[in-house]
Nucleic acid binder design. Structure first.
Lengths: 133, 133
DNA sequence: ACTAAGTTATTGCAAATGCAATGAATAATC
DNA sequence: GATTATTCATTGCATTTGCAATAACTTAGT
């Protein structure tokens, strides 16, 4: 029965290989593109929240975000009330590139499930949603 | 519809965090435990095959296998016919530890799908198997 | 048989990773 | 209100990672 956990791991690693290769030219390899996508869709998360939302180590996430700020994709803002927090937003360059990231993710996703009927795709979506915590 | 690809990535990253933490004490962090499990179950793969079977970069896989040979978990053997190939087998220490690795994988898998009925688990297994070409 | 193309393991190197530790700010407890 | 515990961002450091390149070997094509 642990084919499930193995298959899921295999799909993730394969997908990451392809996506990192695709976005290296934009300086968004090493899963960096994920941060831009998530930040665009949910602006204002603080660093730890963003890290947790993508299940990546906080220190790794911190450094990736720094890099993305330096390269103009993201932007940080101190929280007004809680002085510990630094909230993350997309900068211009991040907003500009989002459509392309989004399109590629959709393309990858479509290809992944292309062997399934529409009904099976719906089933799979529902089953997986029950697994994430 | 790309919740599928996101959920799958989230599950993998979370599972890896937990498994690496669990097996660090054995020197099997950084996904090293995967190599021992797969080699035990399918002995005699050559290095590239093993790497491909777990969707991990060949150079990374090569170095991990080297480390596992040094630490006594795996063993390499030159192929008799094709002088390029080095085939991988578990060493004693690898065989000894396999039951524990296997049990943890089963435990993780069971916990992952614990929110699903038996029928849903079967469905999910079948759907995922269609995704991994 | 010879050459070209493809495959393998392996190494170099720069960059990424992640555990552990720190200091600052907030929340909880007494 | 003082103290303790928790949470946040950040840095240090050793290890890991993976792209690119190389050499040895095998296969395919002529």
């Amino acid at each position: 029965m642990f084919e499930i956990i193995r298959d899921i791991g295999a799909i993730t690693r394969q997908t990451e290989i392809e996506t990192n290769a695709e976005f290296r030219r934009l300086g968004l390899a090493n899963n960096a593109f994920i941060y831009v996508i998530r930040t665009y869709e949910k602006p204002g998360m603080f660093l730890g929240q963003l890290a947790d939302s993508v299940q990546i180590d906080r220190t790794t996430a911190f450094r990736t975000v720094q890099k993305l700020v330096d390269s103009g994709y993201l932007r940080l803002e101190d929280d007004a009330k809680d002085k510990r927090l630094r909230r993350v937003y997309v900068a211009q360059k991040g907003a500009d590139v989002y459509p392309e990231l989004h399109a590629f993710e959709k393309h990858s996703s479509d290809r992944l499930v292309s062997q399934l009927t529409a009904e099976e795709q719906t089933q799979l979506t529902q089953l997986l949603s029950k697994l994430v915590y």
